[in-house]
Write a protein that binds this DNA or RNA. Structure first.
Length: 452
RNA sequence: GUGGGUAUAGCUCAGCUGGUAGAGCGCCGCCUUGUGGUGGCGGAUGUCGCGGGUUCGAGUCCCGUUACUCACCCCA
């Protein structure tokens, strides 16, 4: 077979990279479960009408068709999901009778989109979602909870610092209504373009498309400039002198989220109220989130979410929800391809048991078994090459220890990093804790290497 | 979908106005006789993306094609 070329948009990781991804997934899972979130996995496919509702036609859905289908158009009408929210909403309705509400769930799975790939944007990618869904009415404190849980999970990851930006749809909609905007939804859509278009252009759009006066447009932009890492945004909004009931509610809610996140705030995880944040999607009704990776703003948001008053509906009941998703592939793949993130070994093995000759393989296997029985990953040398070659084999893979057996049956273990070799007993020898598993190495922008 | 760029050894890349395919790193062997890394010496690398054309002769020029890649759009 000729050497296959990589498929654009379908990233594959090397073992030392996959280890990091797996570790990230494990960390998130542990945090989510610590907070009582139950894991689910939904099927990879959904009916096309589910995928295409809410005008999501821009998502470039991959359609599934059997090879033996009679005609190209005769497919079953199913496609791969492009996010985890749509399948989750369907799952909730389908299993409403069996689920307990409020239902906290996490879901770490792949999703697919046919859009043109670019750094940080792939056709097959993994994301981690948490959501809380309720029947009829979802208490507001869950908005605070999902932010806190995701923040806690992400803070434990070997990533550059992250920034959670929070805003509230009620706040901005109330503000826009308060200044007399007739079509707040259009204003929101235009304001969302602030990070792409210069202010003047956004102002012009507000006048031409949203029917605002120049005075009103200026007020909207003034609101959008407000960014604070505490609740002082409330005073600054008040100072603009706009009055509306919805604005009051929004201010109160956003302040509650910002306050509620104070415990998870650190130098590796920033939380800010950002009143320019709108998110283009129209189904958000209150809190909205976006996550950015500091120093990697060109990737755009690496996570996002918010509250939906109608996440799902079965005609009789509506199911409001609030959640956040985080792009695992989106953050990890760019870091890895730049060589900034990988494990320090290509294999899990902590020890390579050397082989004296083929006849003594059972002895080497026995040593390996003794080590494994105590949780130490190890492998036996492939063949009885010269010890120098066996050591080199370990070195290439990053295996830190090589185990030797003397002619008289004594045992010695060598730390090939230091060269130190000491007598050891397979029944009791234990490596330093940090050598038991591969370590994640990150290279920060100041190009210092640190272990996390 | 629109517009650029690229395709040569395992990797990163050179290869001029057409004339027998190159470097660095890595890999293998020996120096080193069963304990690696540093050093010295030696060695192997290849459908020059694919197809066609021009030419005595094409990695090089022309046409086509495929893949990759960057930007726009959009999002995790």
């Amino acid at each position: 077979m000729a050497k296959p070329t990589p498929l654009s948009g379908f990233p594959e990781l090397l073992p030392e990279q996959r280890f990091v991804e797996q570790q990230v997934i494990d960390t998130l899972r542990r945090t989510f479960e610590l907070h009582g979130f139950a894991g689910i996995e939904t099927r990879a496919v959904e009916p096309m009408d589910q995928l295409l509702r809410k005008g999501e036609t821009s998502k470039e859905v991959y359609v599934l068709r059997r090879l033996q289908e009679e005609s190209a158009e005769g497919h079953a009408g199913i496609g791969l999901h492009f996010d985890l929210t749509v399948p989750f909403a369907r799952y909730v309705v389908e299993n409403a009778g069996k689920l307990e509400f409020p239902f906290r769930r996490y879901q770490i799975q792949k999703a697919w989109r046919g859009e043109r790939p670019q750094e940080g944007r792939y056709r097959e990618f993994t994301q981690a979602d948490i959501d809380v869904v309720m029947k009829d009415e979802l208490p507001f404190h869950f908005d605070v909870e999902v932010a806190r849980v995701m923040a806690e999970g992400l803070s434990g990851l070997p990533l550059p610092p992250l920034r959670l930006r929070v805003n509230n749809r009620k706040l901005i909609e109330g503000f826009y209504r308060g200044i007399g905007a007739a079509d707040p939804q259009t204003v929101i859509t235009i304001i969302d373009k602030l990070d792409k278009l210069p202010e003047e252009q956004v102002a012009a759009l507000l006048v031409s498309d949203a029917g605002l006066s120049e005075q009103q447009a200026a007020q909207c932009l003034q609101l959008a400039t407000i960014t604070t890492s505490d609740t002082t945004f409330v005073e600054r909004v008040r100072a603009l002198g706009v009055q509306h009931e919805l604005l009051d509610t929004g201010l109160q809610e956003l302040a509650a989220v910002i306050d509620g996140c104070s415990a998870v705030r650190s130098d590796r995880f920033e939380v800010e109220a950002s009143l320019s944040l709108a998110r283009g999607l129209d189904y958000y009704t209150g809190t909205v989130f976006e996550i950015y990776m500091v120093g990697y703003e060109f990737l755009k948001s690496v996570g996002g979410g918010g509250r939906y008053d109608a996440l799902a509906s079965d005609g009789r009941s509506t199911y409001p929800g609030v959640g956040i998703s985080f792009g695992i592939s989106r953050t990890l793949v760019p870091l890895m391809s730049r060589g900034l993130l990988a494990a320090d070994r290509k294999v899990p093995s902590t020890v390579l048991v050397a082989l004296v000759d083929e006849e003594s393989r059972p002895e080497s296997d026995a040593i390996a078994s003794a080590l494994r029985s105590r949780g130490i990953s190890c492998e036996v040398a492939v063949s009885a090459q010269k010890f120098g070659k066996q050591i080199r084999y370990a070195e290439r893979r990053g295996i830190p220890f090589v185990w030797f057996t003397n002619a008289d049956g004594g045992h010695e273990v060598k730390d090939i990093r230091s060269g130190e070799q000491v007598a050891a007993d397979p029944a009791t020898w234990t490596p330093p804790n940090e050598d038991l598993r591969p370590q994640v190495l990150t290279v920060s922008t100041s190009s210092t290497t640190e272990e996390i």
